[in-house]
Simulated scan of single mutants.
Amino acid sequence: MSAVEQLAEAGARVVEAGLSPGSSGNISVLDGDRVLLSGTGVPLGELGPEDVAVLDLDGAHLGGARPSKEWPLHVAFYRRSPEHRAVVHVHSPSAVAVACLEPWAGHSAVPPLTPYFVMRVGQTPLLPYRAPGDPGLGSDLLECPWELRAALLANHGSVVAGAGLAEAVDRAVELEEACRITLLTSGLARRELDATAIAELSRRWSSPWGGRADLRRGVD
Rank of each mutant, 00 (worst) to 15 (best):
A195D: 13
G162E: 00
P125L: 05
E174V: 13
T114I: 13
R204Q: 13
G122S: 01
Q123P: 00
A131Y: 05
L175T: 02
W146V: 01
L175D: 00
E176N: 06
A154K: 12
G187T: 15
L126M: 15
W205T: 02
G187W: 01
D134E: 03
T185E: 08
D214A: 03
E167A: 03
V110I: 15
P132V: 07
P132Q: 11
P112L: 13
G133I: 07
C144K: 09
L152H: 11
A197R: 14
V110L: 04
G138S: 05
G136L: 15
E192Y: 12
R120M: 11
A213V: 06
E167M: 00
A154S: 10
D140R: 08
A178V: 04
L152E: 10
L193W: 09
D140S: 12
L153S: 03
L165G: 08
L142E: 04
E167K: 00
L193G: 11
A150T: 06
G218E: 11
H156P: 03
I181K: 10
R212C: 09
T185M: 13
E174D: 04
L148G: 03
T114D: 08
A172V: 00
L142N: 08
E200K: 04
T185D: 04
A151I: 12
P135L: 02
P208H: 08
L193C: 05
N155P: 02
P135G: 11
L152A: 01
N155V: 03
L148M: 12
G187D: 13
E177W: 04
P115I: 01
H156A: 05
A154R: 15
D134V: 01
V118N: 00
W146I: 04
A197L: 11
E192H: 10
V169P: 08
T124E: 04
G138P: 11
W205R: 08
